[in-house]
């Protein structure tokens, strides 16, 4: 009975219960003792301001964790998006490897000696195929562009 009175005192004083007391309280509630009436008779009070303040602080602390999770998710989703985009680009590049590799090689290597030798052969062969002239005297033609003014020399005119 004494223990029951202690419990009632603690409950009324909103004091913390030990593990044993909590077990005892549960047993008393189940045994339909007078303690149930006591609890019902307890004054219905709003939680005091100290308790509410402590609760708010705990809630505010707990509330920051979800925010951190949201930030982490944003960062993670960004990584996922970038990764997916990279994967997509890689997939496209990988499926077209022969064409793109050839093009890149040609562009990147266009200044090296060996590639320019080959390009020179390809271009001159093409030029000869489409042009009537195979004596491709390019340098001479560019340096001394003909104007037509010297088509006839004095000796030519005299011979007419």
């Amino acid at each position: 009975m004494k223990e029951e009175q202690n419990l009632i005192t603690k409950l009324k004083g909103e004091m913390a219960l030990s593990a044993e007391e909590s077990t005892e309280l549960d047993a008393l509630l189940d045994s339909s003792s007078s303690i149930g009436n006591v609890i019902r008779d307890l004054p219905h009070e709003e939680p005091n301001l100290v308790w509410r303040s402590q609760l708010n602080e705990k809630l505010s602390v707990l509330a920051e964790k979800p925010k951190r999770r949201i930030g982490l998710w944003k960062w993670a989703s960004g990584v996922v998006v970038v990764g997916a985009a990279s994967l997509a680009v890689w997939s496209v590049v990988n499926t077209r490897t022969p064409v793109i590799a050839t093009t890149n090689t040609t562009i990147a290597d266009s200044t090296n000696f060996e590639d320019q030798l080959m390009q020179s052969h390809v271009e001159s062969a093409a030029a000869m195929d489409v042009s009537s002239a195979y004596a491709l005297d390019v340098v001479s033609s560019k340096e001394t562009s003909y104007t037509g003014e010297e088509e006839w020399s004095t000796s030519d005119l005299e011979s007419l």
Binding site: T111, S120, S124, M128, Y134, D137, V139
Partner: peptide, 29 residues
């Protein structure tokens, strides 16, 4: 032999000769 040209490729002087043989073009660098 059809054509001969002096070409500057990079920093090298290159003599380029174009030949025709069996209907195919050959270049000698």
């Amino acid at each position: 032999l059809q054509n001969s040209r002096a070409v500057k490729i990079g920093d090298r002087n290159v003599l380029t000769q174009t030949y025709i043989l069996e209907g195919r073009r050959l270049t000698l660098f």
